[in-house]
Every structure is written in C-alpha cells, then in structure tokens.
C-alpha cells in the first residue's frame, strides 16, 4: 500500500475513534432535523426554511470539524511527539502531510455525506422536494471545507494548535468578506491602502465563491460552468496551500 494511503487511513481511523466528531455530527443532524419544527412557525415558506437551515448546518458543522479536528491532527502529532516515530521511518515529510490531509478529507467527505443524507431525508419527510441545486450546494460546501482544511494544515505546520485554530477561523471569516475588501479598495482610489487591500483580495481565499446556498434555496439557476470554475479555483488554491505547507514542514525542526 502506498505510504500516503497508509497514513491517510490511519488518520481516518483516528478521527473515527474521536468522540468529538460524533458529537459534532450528532448536533449537526439534530439542527438539520429541527428545521422541521422551526418551519412550522412560518407561513408558506416552510420548504425554504428547511433547506436554508439544513445547508447552513452542514456548512457550519463542516467548518467546525475541519478546523478543530483538522488542526488537532497535525499539531497534536507534533505536540504529543507521535510524529517522531513517523519521521524516523522511511517516510518523507511531504508524504506525512499529504497523508494527514487526505485522511482528513476522507473524514470530511464521510461527515458531509452523513449530514447531507440527514438533510435530504428531512427535506423528503417535509415534502419540500429535493432539487439538484441542493446537491450542487452541498458539493461546493465540501469544496470549501477542503480549502479550509488546507489552511488549517498549513498553519499547524508551524504554529501551536490554539493559534492555528484562531488563524484558520480568521481566514474563514475574512474569506467570506473578500469582496468587501475589493469594494473598499475601489472606493479609496489609487493609494497604498488600495494596493494592500488588492493584495489581500487576491491572496486570501474567496470562500464566497463556494456559497450557492441562496441560489439553491430560492431556485435560481447554478450553471455547470460556475461549478467547474469554483471547483478549479478550490483545487488550485488547495494545491498551492499544500505545497506551501510541505515547504514549511520540510524545514521544521522537531525539538
């Protein structure tokens, strides 16, 4: 078996035996199904409420899992020194990192899968009608999680778990506001601040790109070309982050 796969499967097993994960998934499912109750409070728009809350829950709990489980996976290895025995084996450091990332991606895929199944079940039960657009929205949520996980892994190659979590959370929030950065820059006219804002706009991940929840819920079209470009952007951004993470990790001393 390929060494990346060995590490990925071990990582996946680690997350499966982590109780935090089950708690998160449980609360995710609880929130998704509670949408049925909430929707009874509204008149006429029940279906939209259920879909809206469901997609938002998948997104939020996915992000929490990506950040908190994701950061634990690399920094905990360093902090608990379990990494010593791995690096002492014929395993190049990038293999370790890519293995960890792949294992986490697999965990997220399974979790998003479970939450999505709960979501579609809720939608079916409430007779709101499952639309292909909802599947597209879940797909892009997963793409967003892949980017956030790469951010988390990148930070945890050189800083502590707490700081990694803080930074990643900050990137997540800013990542949804990058359009505002550009708008602000445009209003300022030609200035140093505009240059800085532009640099930030282009270097930070534009996470709103992956947000089609509104369109999906309100039945607006999501073009296949949009999906392709969002996926391409996500994969490219993730690749760059992982290359950066590998470069940092390669030079790191394990004291």
């Amino acid at each position: 078996m390929n060494r990346i796969t060995v590490i990925a499967l071990n990582t996946f097993r680690e997350t499966l035996r982590d109780k935090i994960l089950y708690n998160l998934v449980f609360f995710g499912l609880l929130l998704i199904s509670s949408a049925i109750l909430l929707s009874t409070l509204t008149i006429g728009e029940q279906a939209k409420i259920i879909q809206d809350i469901g997609l938002a829950s998948i997104n939020v709990f996915g992000v929490i899992i990506a950040i908190f489980v994701g950061i634990g996976l690399v920094s905990k290895e360093i902090e608990k020194r379990t990494i010593f025995t791995i690096i002492a084996k014929p395993v190049p450091r990038y293999v370790f990192l890519l293995g960890k990332y792949s294992g986490l991606a697999l965990t997220l895929l399974v979790n998003v899968g479970i939450m999505a199944a709960g979501f579609f079940l809720t939608v079916l039960v409430s007779k709101a009608g499952v639309d292909l657009a909802l599947v597209k929205a879940v797909g892009l949520i997963f793409m967003e999680l892949l980017v956030i996980t790469a951010v988390a892994v990148m930070f945890s190659t050189f800083t502590t778990p707490t700081l990694s979590a803080t930074f990643t959370l900050a990137i997540y929030v800013i990542g949804h506001l990058t359009d505002d950065l550009r708008t602000l820059g445009a209003k300022l006219g030609e200035s140093l601040t505009k240059v800085i804002l532009d640099v930030l706009y282009y270097s930070l991940p534009n996470l709103d790109y992956f947000n089609v929840k509104g369109q999906a819920v309100h039945g607006l079209p999501i073009e296949p070309s949009y999906l392709v470009s969002a996926a391409t952007y996500g994969i490219a951004y993730t690749t760059i982050l992982l290359i950066l993470a590998c470069l940092i990790f390669q030079r790191r001393d394990f004291k």
């Binding site: 982590d18 020194r81 379990t82 010593f84 025995t85 002492a88």
Partner: peptide, 10 residues
C-alpha cells in the same frame, strides 16, 4: 524515542 508517545486509539 524517549518516553514514547504513541497513537493511543490503536
């Protein structure tokens, strides 16, 4: 390694 720490879930 010194005072080894291993994957305790295995």
């Amino acid at each position: 390694p010194e005072s080894p720490y291993f994957y305790e879930y295995l």
